[in-house]
Design a protein around this nucleic acid. Structure first.
Lengths: 337, 337
DNA sequence: TTGTATGCGTTATCAC
DNA sequence: GTGATAACGCATACAA
C-alpha cells in the first residue's frame, strides 16, 4: 500500500447543525430529525416552523452524522478500466441513473486495465466505506477485498468463479456477425481477434455458424488497438487467398481494418464487408459507417447497479448473475449506404 | 426537488471497530487511533502489536467516524455534461490522478447539459458533504449552491462572473486553425460554428488571422452534432462559391463534414482541407485523419483538481483562474498522409 | 509514550 | 407528538 499524503487537517467550517435549528424553532433536536425523516409523525404546524427556520439557516442534515449512525454511506464504488472509453461511459450513465433514483452516488476509480492499480482503487474505495461496488472488466485474478458484508459486482465474463456477475453473451455476438456476413453473400471470411476470453467466445460463436454453413475461415490477431487492426488486416490481405469479409473483435480495431482496406483501394462493402464489435459511438462515425455487434452498455450498467442495490438491501444474499444478449446494428460496411 | 426513494434502512453489519483492536492489543483506543494517524508519536513495539491485531481483524479506520470528527469527507464532487464524451473522460482522468495522490476520491454526477439536472446533481453532491466541487461546462446561469465554505471550480469560459475558473483560450485556437489553413495555401475558407460563447471565441480568433491576411470567409452553423456538420458543409458547397478549406468548431461535427465531402467525391486535403477542434480521440480515427486544435483536457482536469485542493486546504482564499493554450495537431486532413 | 474524557451531527429507543 | 438520551466510530486536548 503506497504512502498517501494526507491533507493538512484544516477542519472545514461547519455549517449550522440540527441543534441550532432546534433552538430557533423551540423544539428538540429529535423533532427536527423527525421532520427530515419520517415527516408524518410530526405535527404539521411544528413541521412548518422547523422547515422555515431550517431554510433561513440554510440547514441540511449532514450526511456525515447520518451515515455514522446508520452505518451506511449511500456511496457505491465503481472501478472502470478507463473513463475515456465511450462504452464505459455509457455503462456509468446506466449505473448513475439507477443510483440517482435511490439517492445514492457513484464513487469513481480507474484501474487502467492493470491488476495492481485495480487493487489500489478497490482499497481506495473501501476506505470511503462504500456500501457496495461494481468492477468493470476486472483484471485482478483473485476476489477483490471486501470487508464486512460489502459485495463486488463483476461486469465481465472472466470471473465465473465469483458469484455476482453481469455479462454479455459473446458467443451469440459471434453468431450474429457470421449470419450477417453470410446473409450478404460472403464466402471467404476472416476473424481478427485479441487475447482474452471475450475474443475467444466471440470467435467460437462465429465458428459455430460457419461450420454449419460448411465454410472455413482465416484468422489474425491484434490487441484491440487501431494499429493492430491495420496490421492484422494487412497480414490477411498479403496472404493472397480470397477474402470478402472480416469480423473484428472490437470497433477500435475495426477502424484500423477500414484504414488498411482504404489503402489498398478496396471498396466496402462491395469488395470486403466488415463487422465490428461493441457498437461504440465510434462505429457510426467511421467511413464507411461500421456494422457492429451492439453491447447494451447502458442496460448492463443499470443491471449491475440494481444487483448491487439488492445485495446492499440484503434482499438477495443469493448469488445472482445476469447475461445480456448482443444485437446486430446494420450499417454501410455490410450493406448499401 | 424530486422525491428520492430512500433505501430501506437495513443497517450494514458493522466491521470490527477501533475498540476491538484496542482490546486485543491491550491498549486504549486513543493509541490505536494514533497508530493510524501520527505514526511517530507511538512506541514502535506498541505500534507493531496494534498493527498486527488490526491486520488479523481486517480492521481499517472507518472514514465515517473519521470524517465526522474532522468535518471533511475527502470527497470531491464532479459534474460533467456526459460521461460518454471522451474529452470529458480525459478530464476526469486528470482530476482522478491528482486527487488519488491526496487520498481523495471523485464523486460523480452528470448534468446532461441541462441547467435543471445540473442543479439537481449539485444538490446530490452537497448532500454527501463533498469538500469541494468541479463543474464542467456549466449551463446553470447562477452560481451553484455552496453551503459553508465549499467552493465550485468552473471548467468553461462562460462564467466570467465566478471567481474560480479553468478555461481554454479559444481565440488562440481559432488563430492556430487559420494559420494552418493559410500555411497549406488555402484562400477560400469557411467556418462552421455552433451556439455559445466557445464557438464565438474560436471564430473571432479565426477571423483576426484572416483579416490580417486580407481574406474574407464564409460561415455556416451547426450544433456540434455529426449530422449538423454534414448539413452545414452541404450548405456551403451548394452555395457554389469557391471553397478549399473548412474550420469546424468541434471534432464530432467535423466527422459530419468529412462525410459530406466524401459524398461529393471531393478529395481531402487536395480539394478541401479540414481542421477540427478538441482533438478528441475520434479525430485520429476519422478518414482522413483529422487535423485538430487540441484541448489539453487531462491537464485542465488536473489543474481544476489542484485549484480545488488549494481552496479546500484554505491556502488561497483568493480567486484564481487558469487559462490553457490549445495546440495544433497536424494530420492528413490538412497535409500529406 | 499512553490513557481518559469529550465532542463531532445524526438517528433511534425510550419515556412522557 | 414530543423530549431526553444513548449510541455510532473516531480524533484529540488534556492529564498522567
Amino acid at each position: 500500500m503506497p504512502e498517501v499524503t494526507h491533507n493538512p487537517v484544516t477542519p472545514l467550517p461547519r455549517g449550522s447543525g440540527i441543534r441550532e435549528v432546534a433552538r430557533l424553532a423551540g423544539v428538540s433536536i429529535a423533532t427536527v430529525s423527525r421532520v427530515f425523516n419520517d415527516a408524518e409523525l410530526v405535527n404539521p404546524e411544528t413541521r412548518q416552523r422547523v422547515l422555515e427556520r431550517a431554510a433561513t439557516l440554510g440547514y441540511e442534515p449532514s450526511s456525515l452524522g447520518r451515515n455514522l449512525v446508520r452505518g451506511r454511506s449511500d456511496l457505491l464504488g465503481l472501478i472502470v478500466p478507463n473513463v475515456s472509453f465511450p462504452l464505459y461511459g455509457e455503462m456509468i450513465s446506466g449505473i448513475e441513473d439507477v443510483l440517482g433514483q435511490r439517492g445514492m452516488s457513484v464513487l469513481l476509480a480507474s484501474s487502467h486495465d492493470e491488476a495492481a492499480s485495480e487493487l489500489l482503487a478497490a482499497q481506495h474505495l473501501l476506505r470511503h466505506t462504500v456500501d457496495g461496488g461494481i468492477v468493470v472488466n476486472s483484471q485482478f485474478d483473485a476476489a477483490l477485498p471486501a470487508p464486512r458484508s460489502m459485495n463486488w459486482i463483476y461486469v465481465s465474463p472472466e470471473h465465473v468463479k465469483f458469484p455476482n456477475r453481469v455479462e454479455l453473451d459473446n458467443g451469440a455476438g459471434g453468431r450474429l456477425a457470421a449470419r450477417e456476413l453470410l446473409r450478404v453473400g460472403r464466402r471467404h471470411l476472416a476473424y481478427i481477434g485479441a487475447p482474452g476470453r471475450e475474443s475467444q467466445d466471440r470467435e467460437r460463436g462465429f465458428t459455430d455458424e460457419l461450420c454449419q454453413a460448411g465454410l472455413s475461415y482465416r484468422r489474425a490477431g491484434g490487441d484491440y488497438s487501431e494499429l493492430s487492426g491495420t496490421w492484422a488486416a494487412e497480414e490477411l490481405l498479403d496472404n493472397g487467398a480470397a477474402l470478402d469479409a472480416i469480423f473484428v473483435a472490437g470497433d477500435l480495431m475495426a477502424a484500423g481494418v477500414l484504414r488498411a482496406l482504404h489503402r489498398r483501394g478496396l471498396r466496402m462493402p462491395e469488395d470486403v464487408a466488415v463487422v465490428g464489435f461493441d457498437d461504440s459511438p465510434l462505429a457510426a462515425l467511421l467511413y464507411p459507417r461500421l456494422t457492429s455487434i451492439r453491447q447494451p452498455a447502458y442496460a448492463m450498467g443499470a443491471a449491475a447497479a440494481e444487483l448491487s442495490l439488492r445485495l446492499i438491501a440484503g434482499l438477495s444474499a443469493e448469488a445472482e448473475s445476469v447475461v445480456f444478449l448482443p444485437e446486430l446494428v446494420r450499417r454501410e460496411s455490410t450493406g448499401p449506404p
